[in-house]
């Protein structure tokens, strides 16, 4: 992990919360505020975590809950994936992941990715999400491209042109494997 300012000493009250968040992150999971409140009904979870000043604890606001993770064993990038999965909104999960891929690498995203871990969406969920995406004007930038073997990819036209999206789809799906 990157150099961080040392955290202040953890108070005995906050300690079980910190430990629970760190343990979950080690196992690759986020912890929600509601879960912590259930587990530690006597504690003011939100206040204790916020006031603890523990640097490795990070918070993400969800639509109906707050998520925590420790960046000692989980990167922010992975936490964001987990967040999107936990939010249970496949349309948003797919659209935001596709935009990130097109912006960062840049590359189109194979739809098959969402059937695999850590997303593991059902075929039906993926199909439905793709259908619903086409009806959303705010997701107009999410475009489809298909490779010569029929595999479907998505990319964001904010970051990749149609020609690039098509070329990279063919390359990632077919070319890479033909040119080991």
């Amino acid at each position: 992990m990157e150099n961080q300012e040392p955290s202040p000493e953890i108070t005995p009250k906050a300690l079980p919360l910190v430990e629970a968040i760190r343990a979950a992150s080690k196992g690759g999971a986020l912890v929600t505020q509601r879960t912590l409140e259930k587990e530690f009904p006597d504690l003011n979870v939100h206040a204790l975590i916020t006031e603890s000043g523990v640097k490795d604890l990070k918070k993400m606001e969800g639509s109906s809950d707050v998520y925590y993770f420790s960046d000692l064993s989980m990167t922010e990038a992975y936490a964001v994936f987990m967040y999107r999965i936990n939010e249970k909104d496949p349309v948003r999960l797919i659209a935001e992941t596709v935009r990130d891929d097109s912006r960062i690498y840049p590359r189109p995203t194979p739809v098959a990715t969402f059937r695999e871990p850590p997303f593991s969406l059902s075929a039906r969920d993926v199909e439905e999400a793709l259908g619903r995406m086409t009806l959303r004007p705010d997701l107009e930038d999410i475009k489809r491209s298909s490779a010569s073997n029929g595999a479907l990819y998505l990319y964001s036209s904010q970051f990749l042109s149609e020609a690039q999206g098509d070329a990279l789809t063919e390359w990632f799906e077919v070319g890479v494997r033909e040119n080991p």
Binding site: Y105, P118, F172
Partner: peptide, 13 residues
């Protein structure tokens, strides 16, 4: 190739 808790990046290929 797949997102992992320790990883900032991933690439299916």
């Amino acid at each position: 190739s797949h997102p992992q808790p320790w990883a900032e990046f991933n690439n299916p290929t």
